[in-house]
């Protein structure tokens, strides 16, 4: 009685492609959820098939395959070099490649690692965008960096705040920097930025 629905499981009319081994449900093409699920299943199946583990099951999250980490590190270093030489556009490209590479990590690898890598890369790309004075992109990237890593990421908080100020969105900047201060504690740069925003707001009101 506890689980009446459990005993009967509906058998779905699934179909398997002999060549690609892809699962489909041609009879239920109107069932969007099922179709989406099958697409996800097939793509997971393909990634599982590329695994080198003996039984082709995902390995435990730790230890991580070092190959990809090394590649991401390399892309980040190239980006940093370009940034230092003032080639901001190229730096943006390298950081972008690094971000793609980090986000394409197999899903079963530790998310904490992905967050760390992506947070650093997004923060750096935001800075490179700021070097190009493309404030809008910089603001978005810095926000993404904060989303990936909320605490201990004062630089990214500051960068989005700066970009918002440059675009003249003072109210928004004040709210953002205020939130940043809540997360980061007393951070000198953020405080200075907040003071700047406040004086600008006061000016805007008085004029």
């Amino acid at each position: 009685m506890a689980q009446p629905a459990d005993d009967i499981i509906e058998i779905l009319p699934l179909d398997i492609d002999p060549q690609t081994k892809a699962i489909g449900a041609p009879g239920l093409s109107s069932n969007k959820a099922l179709q989406a699920e099958l697409a996800a299943l097939n793509s997971l199946h393909r990634t599982l098939l590329t695994l080198e583990t003996p039984s082709q099951i995902p390995p435990p999250p730790i230890p991580v395959n070092p190959k990809r980490s090394a590649q991401i590190g390399k892309l980040k270093d190239s980006g940093n070099d370009c940034y230092r030489k003032g080639k901001y556009a190229e730096a943006v490209k390298f950081y972008g490649l690094g971000i793609d590479m980090a986000l394409k990590r197999p899903l079963w690898e530790p998310q904490q690692l992905v967050r760390e890598e992506v947070a650093a890369l997004f923060a750096n790309r935001a800075q490179a965008h700021m070097g190009l004075t493309s404030w809008a992109e910089g603001a978005v990237d810095a926000e993404a960096s904060v989303e990936a890593k909320r605490v201990g990421n004062a630089k990214a908080w500051w960068r989005r705040g700066r970009c918002l100020v440059e675009m003249g969105r003072l109210e928004e900047a004040r709210e953002w920097v205020g939130r940043g201060l809540e997360m980061e504690g007393e951070e000198a740069d953020l405080k200075a930025l907040l003071a700047e925003v406040d004086t600008k707001l006061a000016q805007a009101k008085s004029s």
Binding site: P58, L103, E109, E143, A148
Partner: peptide, 20 residues
């Protein structure tokens, strides 16, 4: 363990995609 990371990773990517 794997499934846990997969769920969390999917969430992170979704949020980042939204922002981007």
């Amino acid at each position: 363990q794997s499934a846990n990371e997969m769920a969390a990773n999917a969430m992170v990517r979704e949020r980042l995609d939204e922002i981007q």
